[in-house]
Design a protein around this nucleic acid. Structure first.
Lengths: 359, 359
DNA sequence: ATGAAAGCGCTAACAA
DNA sequence: TTGTTAGCGCTTTCAT
């Protein structure tokens, strides 16, 4: 802690300055800026004029102290991922603008840091609420927040005690698979991440439902899951490796594969290229997430409505900040299909024969 | 403005609570938490013990009010771009952690919004300093900040009145071109963005210098620049179109091209694939920026030290906040070469003859 | 409708 | 070394 140099020269005007020049009490000035009804029109106008001429802006910290609310919220996000969060934050911020609320960012590098940040920011009552992204809320804090009724909204993660919003993974997988089916594919596979993870599990469910509804039997050979624990198998490498297994099937290879994430799909594509196979001519691919890469690679995929999710999260947080006793709600968002060039009708190759046994 | 529900039940402890239980005055408690030297070890220990047992955390807003400094800074970033900023913010945040300082995020969608944010946050003295990214500082604010000595650090943009840090574009281009040269290429082209933009201009300079130093004449036909105004031609489409022009050269095509950005390189690659040409076999490509896409596409590129830049920016801002009268400094960061598979030695094709006229 | 005054939780100057 | 006190700029009773 060093000496704290005062901002030179110019000092921002306070309500006292305004009050003096407008010949009113500071209370009145305050009322004007809080839109309190009991100020005469004349006075209000006079105060506003003076305030404008002095370029007055209420000091948020003084306000925060007096009001016991800071008008700012904290976003705790894992910093290793990128695109998804920025898009959501965009939605958050837009909404926050309406609410005259600021956004504090806390990027988590290491899980341990989560706790210290939460402690610092919340217990210090520096923020009015928290947006918590994609991580499991540490149990100790979950308990504490629940009983202190701290406003918390969970995004892309779940805890029964807090508001949460997630994407309907299963429905997205259903959409993806259905797209492939409606393109005319019959031999459809799924390249999944680690089934232990919730999203992977849900996406498998959606795949199965689509296949069942279309009455297409699922060949177990066509359903491959990563056993990687690194990021639950949602990695480029995992996609690459599993795709090689598909390729090893040779002529028995599916004509289309639903891949559980775009990042895996990028690896799958690499494996295909390496094997001299072309997408979509030899095989159609549908991914999931719609990360930026997907558009560059031309991957048909499932998009999550990130901006809306962000806006919704901010809105929900605001509601909760205004009423600490709302019961937690759990909102599901519906993803949508984005068709690009990695999916196409199956090519009727040297029409030998229909595939026989699908088990 | 609605009724403001108080946080139910639990109220955070204040220095008064601590003081009472530790049987000291509030001043002493304050001193302890400000590491003021004149507190006896015994007292300090006692206060700390009580504080810990009560889970006390100083209230940042009260502190801010009294100290006239908020311990938080504002990052103003253009929200349409993504990866680059997150990486820099990572560096920023790491540094900020050391400084016990918070990060307020303001994403700019529309240039108009810049001003309102700056006004709100700075004039309201909500933040101690500003990190301003990749945009031209609006003149009105530049003047005001300069005379108010508001701590501002510019990142990836320049203004003589403020600290700034930028990347040595020219040097990066030099590195890229040199890499191609050292690989043995002689027919080297450059696929540039809109030369009106500063980075495009600087990158051209670096290209020219490398060629000159290697005494390889530059064929004007091999230097193509986008005339697009959209993002100054730093787009996938621009890269795609210009690469088609290169391809149209047929056998006269360069054996290697330095592309002014990865995003353009991705478009260039697409054009190549479309034309049935392979990279690096038929032509080597080096990009610039090292966006995530580059690694997925295997593009050799020039990387900017983003995390370091972020940390440096935060550090510089801190210095300036501690001494408002420092003269502005302008720091250049050196980019580095990342070799991937899009660049390789030229293939000695059906060695017909040396290229004759390079004009 | 308006002014005066008492905090909000803290820092820092001043005494002791 | 310590306690006391006067702000920091604002909101919010309580009078008037």
């Amino acid at each position: 802690m060093e000496a704290l140099p005062e901002r030179n020269g110019y000092l921002p005007p306070t309500i006292y300055d305004i009050a003096k020049r407008a010949k009113v009490g500071i209370g009145t000035v305050s009322r004007v800026f809080n839109n309190h009804p009991s100020v005469s029109d004349a006075t209000r106008k006079r105060v506003l004029k003076v305030a404008n001429s002095l370029n007055y802006q209420p000091h948020p910290y003084a306000r925060g102290l007096a009001r016991k609310r800071t008008n700012s919220i904290l976003a705790v996000i894992p910093f290793f991922t990128t695109f998804f969060f920025l898009e959501i934050l965009q939605g958050v911020q837009e909404k926050l603008g309406e609410l005259d609320c600021d956004l504090l960012l806390y990027g988590v590098h290491h899980p341990d840091h989560v706790e210290s940040s939460l402690r610092q920011n919340v217990l210090r009552s520096r923020v009015d609420g928290i947006l918590f992204f994609s991580m499991a809320m540490p149990a100790a804090f979950a308990k504490q927040y629940a009983q202190m009724k701290t406003p918390v909204v969970l995004i892309d993660t779940y805890n029964k005690d807090f508001d949460s919003l997630t994407v309907e993974n299963s429905f997205g997988a259903f959409l993806a698979t259905n797209h492939l089916i409606s393109l005319g594919h019959k031999r459809i596979g799924m390249l999944n991440a680690n089934i232990e993870s919730l999203p992977a599990h849900q996406r498998l469910k959606g795949f199965q439902r689509a296949m069942n509804e279309a009455e297409i039997p699922i060949d177990p050979l066509y359903v491959k899951k990563s056993s990687s624990t690194k990021l639950d198998g949602f990695t480029r490498e995992a996609g690459y490796e599993l795709m090689k297994e598909f390729i090893a099937l040779g002529s028995e290879m599916p004509t289309a594969i639903f891949v559980s994430s775009d990042i895996q799909a990028s690896g799958a594509l690499a494996a295909l290229t390496e094997a001299g196979l072309r997408c979509p001519e030899d095989i159609s691919i549908v991914g999931f997430d719609d990360i930026e890469l997907a558009s560059h690679l031309g991957i048909t995929t499932i998009r999550q409505p990130m901006a809306e999710m962000g806006a919704f999260a901010a809105g929900r947080l605001a509601e909760r900040m205004n009423n600490l006793n709302l019961p937690p709600t759990h909102k599901m968002f519906m993803p949508s299909l984005v068709v690009r060039k990695s999916s196409a009708p199956p090519v009727v190759r040297s029409v030998k024969q229909k595939k026989v046994s699908l088990v």
